[in-house]
Amino acid sequence: MTTISIENVKKSFGDAHILKSVSLDIKHQEFTVLLGPSGCGKSTLLRIIAGLETQDTGVIKIGDRTVSHLPPKERNVAMVFQNYAVFPHMTVFENIAFGLRMKKAPEQKIKENVERTATLMHIDHLLHRYSGQLSGGQRQRVAVARALAVEPDVLLMDEPLSNLDALLRLQMRAELKAVLEASKTTTVYVTHDQVEAMSLADRIAVMNAGRIDQYDLPDEIYNNPATEYVGSFIGNPPMNFISPTFQRGDIPEGATQLGIRPEDFDVSTEAREDYWPITILTRERLGSHQQLSAELNGQLFRVNIANEIDVSSGNTLYLKPKDDKKRWYSESGKIIL
């Protein structure tokens, strides 16, 4: 059983508090994505799990083992780096074999594992090349194969796709998903790309300024953002937050903001009861739908509507948030259930 348990981990660099008491329990064989903007502490947390940084306080456990102060080599983890970190002075074969050689694995096993993982990553024809002879995508494959070859308890990945171009990234994403699902290794994956997170993760931890705002299934994160921050970070465009002063009907006690996603409105071109009259500021045609920027009582928000509705800037449109999609948030930005 390889679980990862992080308890009250804090980390500062000088005056900068990068991690402010983070706790996280990652389940056996689960694929967890740490998601957040740059500077939120996600990479630092990953590096602390790897042992590349040491936390100021707090405890890290992998399985039953407390690894808080062990060097990386004693944690039985593997890591894929953003710039791949494929050793330029070794062949692809030697790169993949590196971890096994350090563990003094028998030659037979090294050969087997290297060939198995290389085949898995479709680089078995490149084993005798050097990294300088490989494309970015191929280096990425070597890095993943190298990590898988050591059969680690935990696989750590730090923005592994962000140096690839857009098309290749899509392809690698799908491939990674298949490979990692098959390998059943507990994985922690850092990214700032919400689409990548949604598509890969069993569970997402959304990080904000050194804290984890929400740790949940991707659908839960999307549908029930635990904080205003999560709602405004996930989704494109993000969730609207509207002061509910003009809202008729029940407002839960303590709620100061209504959160509603752009696609969760009933739309009408004519005035109706309970519908808000909004003024359209801009209209963007996006192919599958159109996106409106609109204004109501001085509050700006975004709406996605079907292509068939014919409106233009300056028009008035009537909207009603779908009742089951409304989420309410307190003064401090927390969801009210």
């Binding site: 790897a50 042992g51 060097p71 970190a85 590196f98 350090m102």
Partner: peptide, 23 residues
């Protein structure tokens, strides 16, 4: 020399000295 090369070696089982000598 990218520091990640050294870190990769640490994660893959080297101590600091080994990583320095091998990478």
């Amino acid at each position: 020399i990218p520091v990640e090369l050294e870190e990769a070696a640490w994660v893959l089982g080297c101590n600091r000295w080994q990583a320095f000598m091998k990478v």
